[in-house]
């Protein structure tokens, strides 16, 4: 069953058409990766899906409901969470608070409960903390224990990427959007991220991710979409897409043109 349905999505910034008539479907429990050269519009697609930018035309259906026009926090509440290519952690908050803050959309206690610390509030707060600890323990021992109360800026780069994923998990999403999860990672960490995405799928998340690192893409994707100039140029299994002529052209340039120049 399709959890996400993107229908003829378009977006331009000024005179530049960044996403051009893009349609695709994402099935529940699937791992879909979007590849493409720099400036192909991959991150913009994610921004359109999460409501950061409104699309010019087209429609996005998430679990059968149109989410075009909703604010980002409303979309997150429906069960879509993302990470950022350029890390956007809450640097001066502690690691556990970074994750706990993302429990906002599915918690409800209002001002009265907060001020008077009612038993309901205590229960909810304990749940939030347990959820945060659970999300952080997903990454083994790296982000747990004495690390909980350390500020996020104290983390190494790879751990910051992991914390971003933990934070996204705390919003209790059904669909996780990962924007270049392996960017800036060394080969060992890249491999680990690849395994991790698989584990995330096994935990029941549907995953859409953008990646430059072909090792990650080939290792884990069920399906690959290639974008160039905002247009879908290929779709299918990894093997099919990388052998597609238009994809090779987009990445390496046209064979013919080399000859004409020479």
């Amino acid at each position: 069953m399709a959890i996400l349905n993107v229908d003829r999505l378009s977006k331009h910034f000024g005179g530049l058409l960044v996403v051009n008539d893009l349609s695709f479907e994402l099935n529940e429990g699937e791992i879909l990766s979007i590849i493409g050269p720099n400036g192909a519009g991959k991150t913009t697609v994610l921004n359109l899906l999460t409501g950061i930018n409104p699309p010019d035309s087209g429609d996005i259906h998430f679990q059968g409901q149109s989410i075009v026009g909703l604010q980002p926090h409303q979309i997150t509440k429906l069960g879509m969470a993302r990470t950022f290519q350029t890390l956007r952690l809450f640097l001066n908050m502690s690691i556990i608070e970074n994750v706990m803050s993302a429990a906002y959309p599915h918690t409800k206690k209002g001002l009265f409960d907060i001020i008077f610390r009612t038993s309901g509030w205590r229960k909810e707060e304990a749940q939030i903390r347990a959820l945060a600890q659970e999300s952080l323990s997903f990454f083994g021992e790296r982000l747990v224990g004495y690390r909980f109360d350390q500020p996020a800026y104290s983390l190494s780069y790879a751990n910051r990427r992991r914390l971003e994923i933990a934070r996204a998990m705390a919003t209790k999403p059904k669909l996780l959007l990962l924007d270049e999860p392996a960017a800036g990672m060394n080969p060992k960490e890249t491999l680990e991220i690849t395994e991790l995405i698989g584990q995330l799928r096994d935990k029941g998340y549907t995953i859409l991710f953008i990646e430059h690192d072909m090792n990650v893409v080939s290792g884990i994707s069920d399906r690959v979409i290639a974008l160039d100039y905002g247009q879908k140029i290929a779709e299918g299994s990894y093997q099919e897409v990388v052998e597609n002529e238009r994809v090779i052209e987009a990445y390496l340039g046209r064979k013919q043109s080399v000859w004409t120049k020479a």
Partner: peptide, 12 residues
């Protein structure tokens, strides 16, 4: 810290 990230994490 980061209001765009906060918004995307579901915080109104």
């Amino acid at each position: 810290e980061d209001d765009l990230a906060a918004e995307v994490m579901g915080i109104p």
